[in-house]
Design a protein around this nucleic acid. Sequence first.
RNA 1: UGGGGAGUCGUCCAAUGGCAGGACGGCAGACUCUGGAUCUGCUUAUAGGGGUUCGAAUCCUCUCUCCCCAGCCA
Length: 561
Amino acid sequence: MAPEKPSDFIREIITGDLETNKYEGRVHTRFPPEPNGYLHIGHAKSICLNFGIAGEFGGLCNLRFDDTNPTKEEVEYVESIKEDVRWLGFDWGDRLFYASDYFAQLYRFAVELIQKGKAYVCDLTADQIREYRGTLTTPGKESPYRNRPVEENLDLFARMKAGEFPDGSRTLRAKVDMASGNINMRDPVMYRILHAEHHRTGDQWCIYPMYDWAHGQCDSIECITHSICTLEFEDHRPLYDWFLDELRAYHPRQIEFARLNLSHTVLSKRKLIQLVREGHVRGWDDPRMPTISGFRRRGYTPEAIRNFCDRIGVAKRDSVVDIALLEHCLREDLNRRAPRVMAVLRPLRVIIDNYPEGVVEELEATNNPEDPGMGTRKVPFSRVLYIEREDFRETPPKEFYRLAPGREVRLRYAYFITCTGAVRDEKTGEVVELRCTYDPATRGGDSPDGRKVKATLHWVSAPHALQAEVRLYDHLFVKEDPGAMGEGEDFKSSLNPKSIETLTSCFVEPGLKAAAAGSRHQFERQGYFCVDPDSSGETLVFNRTVTLRDTWAKIEKAQKR
RNA sequence: UGGGGAGUCGUCCAAUGGCAGGACGGCAGACUCUGGAUCUGCUUAUAGGGGUUCGAAUCCUCUCUCCCCAGCCA
């Protein structure tokens, strides 16, 4: 139950650094998102790692927005990211930073490199730069502007900053090594001209630093001890070291780990933004999305997500974590805390023929068998009820031990009932109503004669039930790894057409009338559900967060095969 | 075919020269007023070859496979 203290190669490295007193005993990490989209579960892994490590080692973790590309970044994203990190349960204190806070400093650093002859203004077009860069197997060619005099570089760079040149006309490049096997070292662009409005600095700048130029210096400025990032930045590390060496600046230690992949979904901002923009989902917080806001709306708890992040571990090999593990963590948490309630999703009317008309009984029900402290409640019982349509079969298959003609079952917390007949619709032949009798001696659900029944059904009293809309969700993608596609195939081709099913005539216990948006309940025998923000006093709307484990469904599936 | 990484149960993570272990999943059973929860048991793995060693997942060596890099994205 309680997750052991996670340990991994990163924490081992940090422990080692502490032992050798490499950073005067400090541990200072940071979570550096680009505000160009909403955070997803992969970011949660990074957040839990960075903030978690800081917490465990008595250190600090900064929140820093990598806002170096004004054409893609927006305040809406900044706000959502702050909300999501907070919701996950982490606190950056007074250490909220932006790469844009350091634009002036970065500019001075660039001038310093120019003066050292380590950076130059290049007039090559983007296409030319690509040509000159060479390929994976052939070295690049040096730019004809590579050996411009320092004074000319200084003048041109100042005029780039002053806005004298159009977008794309020139860049500032680091003078490293065009023949390096590491393409990142082939005179990378440090600044590009972009006459774009920045969400924080407005029109103050028209040259913007590239990530590779900004990132290492930002970490250095903030005196980060351990710069934890994903694998693809492993071969950028030599460049970051080169910059810091040339600037004689403080070096954080960069450690790379494998990003999270989750089965049956995609975790790439490019793909997620596509799902949102093309309307395949209803927004970033669509409960089917693997975004933090999507999970929140779906009814996930921060505890479940954090526990999941602890359990998946941290390593350097690519992997795809089964979404079943996330769902397991969720159920484990919700099982402990979610109050139980009865709700009928696909109603079938039941008349108890021998129960007096007009009588209403209040029966006592347990709120959470896992936690007696959560008490009990009263649920109304009467002659006309709804039960789940799938809990009745006219000709029950093998191992189906719910209701069928002539069979006796228990209504949870109520009575034993026996089915005496099914009423059909004359035209369609569909069963529309069940006639049953009850045994008054079994009130509360116990039989004084010790008689057993094989099944216990959930139910609601028809005259007291509240109507509700319930949205059932399934995996967004049918394929386990939608990202792995063949030639010319689109990841959206494996979108699950049944990822959402909306049921509008569901009935829930009257006690749910005032349920607050976001509140979570277990609908007994079915799953965990939470109140969607679309819910109003008029219509209750629930999202199915996750189903309960369903043994019968498995048996039935096996029987069909 | 340059450079950088990675290969352990179906999946994820351990084992840091000394009995390959845990979790999830799956299967079987016990229990149960949720076919839930809980409990018990079972299942299956060191990419391949050679070498060092009393002993190798771990060290050496060759091979194979997979991932990342040729944005004025991050």
